[in-house]
Design a protein around this nucleic acid. Structure first.
Length: 225
DNA sequence: GCTCTGATGGTCT
DNA sequence: GACCATCAGAGCA
């Protein structure tokens, strides 16, 4: 209930996604490409219907050997091989034995860089996304966090290495309206290279995952052994 | 509101 | 066998 309206006043379900991104737009260092992905639309077309969300939070991971937090840091292992593929592919990995998380491969083929998709605002198919995310209590929680984002979009192991730039693909990356303002800060949930401000989010977006301003992520590494 | 913990399994050493 | 690019829910203030 309650039809969400665009700024121009039309129902979002009638909004047509912008053009697909071109591979050239994903070249360059991951920390330079990542903020340009904010505002872009990630769209999944499934038999149950379409869900599209507007990216509001991402993180950059570099494959040039300087970023120990990147899955590609140890080379093209079976899991991380997709990261060394061409830009615009979807790198999906299984996290904590429970969740799937999604990255967009960026940079030149062979580089091993990617951008983790952390959060977005669902703009099309909100009811379908809500059905996939029964724990979400509010619209902003539908895709607030990397694993929640993949749940809302129904992204899973079957989407590994999907070509987001192919118009015939069921998972695609479309250009959207860029945010007015972008913020940057440390990445979440990693234990190395925490000093790099490679997390980017749309300033003020409600769907940006929770973070302690100035305090960093809560430390859970202080457990005794 | 904030903090803490269990769940759960692939990946890599 | 340890380590996770996490989430949801319980407990407490």
């Amino acid at each position: 209930m309650g039809v969400v309206l665009t700024r121009s006043g039309g129902p979002l379900s009638d909004v047509v996604p912008g053009p697909l991104l071109a591979p050239e737009e994903l070249l360059g260092p991951p920390d330079a490409v990542a903020p340009t992905l904010l505002g872009c639309w990630l769209v999944t077309d499934r038999p149950a219907g379409r869900v599209a969300l507007r990216l509001t939070e991402v993180e950059a991971y570099a494959g040039d050997g300087t970023d120990p937090a990147a899955h590609s840091h140890r080379g093209p292992t079976p899991r991380a091989a997709v990261m060394f593929g061409p830009p615009g592919r979807l790198y999906v990995y299984f996290s904590y034995g429970v969740h799937w998380c999604a990255n967009i491969v960026v940079g030149a083929e062979g580089q091993g860089s990617a951008v983790l998709l952390r959060a977005g605002d669902v703009v099309v198919g909100e009811e379908l996304a809500a059905a996939r995310r029964p724990a979400a209590k509010a619209a902003r929680d539908l895709a607030r966090g990397p694993a929640r984002l993949t749940q809302a979009l129904d992204i899973g192991p079957g989407d590994k290495d999907a070509d987001l730039l192919d118009p015939s693909s069921s998972v695609r990356l479309h250009r959207g309206e860029p945010p007015v303002q972008v913020s940057a800060g440390p990445r979440v949930g990693i234990s190395v290279a925490t000093e790099l401000p490679w997390r980017f989010w749309e300033t003020g977006a409600a769907s940006v995952s929770a973070f302690r301003p100035g305090g960093g992520p809560r430390s859970r590494r202080a457990r005794q052994d």
